[in-house]
Computed example of a mutant assay.
Amino acid sequence: MKNIIAVLFIFFVASFQAQNLEKLSKEINEEGIALYRSEMASWYGTDVFKANYKQMENVGGYFSYIDDSVPKCIFFSRENKII
């Protein structure tokens, strides 16, 4: 009888964990897609920026983000001014 209860308990826990894994998997997938889109914004943004801005020694850095499903890339100078 103890073995049957133990097996049922294991099946119950396994099914509960499987539901959490599906939710976790969906969250990880969504985060991965967001990171991919941000990286693509950085990649293409850098290409466009380099083609139009010739004083690359003034660039201090950049960051990209998604705004209303539109990827955006911001470049700033070493003096922390937006270029």
Rank of each mutant, 00 (worst) to 15 (best):
N20M: 07
Q55P: 00
Q55H: 10
W43A: 06
I4M: 06
N3K: 14
N58Y: 06
M1I: 08
V70S: 07
F49A: 03
E31W: 11
L24W: 06
I83V: 09
N58E: 12
N20P: 00
F12E: 01
V7F: 15
G60D: 01
E39H: 12
K72E: 02
S25L: 03
M40Q: 12
I83N: 05
F63Y: 14
D67T: 08
E27K: 14
A51W: 07
E22F: 08
Y62G: 01
V48N: 10
I66K: 10
N80D: 06
L21E: 07
G32Q: 13
A18M: 05
S42P: 03
Y53F: 14
I82D: 02
K81R: 13
M1H: 09
K81A: 08
Y65I: 03
Q19D: 01
N3W: 03
I5V: 11
I74N: 10
E30W: 12
I4W: 11
I10R: 08
N3S: 09
S77C: 04
Y36L: 14
V70W: 05
L8K: 11
G45E: 01
I83E: 03
I74L: 12
A41V: 11
A6M: 10
E57N: 12
P71S: 03
L35N: 15
R37W: 10
A41Q: 07
N20D: 04
G60Y: 08
S69P: 00
F49S: 04
D47K: 13
S64D: 02
Y62C: 00
I28V: 14
N29M: 13
Y44M: 08
F11M: 14
G45D: 01
D47S: 03
S42G: 11
E79V: 04
D67M: 06
K81H: 09
L35I: 15
R78C: 01
G32R: 13
S25K: 10
D68K: 15
S15M: 07
P71R: 12
I74C: 07
D47I: 09
G32S: 15
F63M: 05
N20K: 13
D47N: 11
L24F: 06
V59G: 01
Q19M: 02
I74S: 04
I4P: 01
A18P: 00
V7K: 13
L24Y: 09
S69K: 15
V48G: 00
E31P: 00
D47G: 06
A34G: 05
I66Y: 08
A14F: 04
A14N: 02
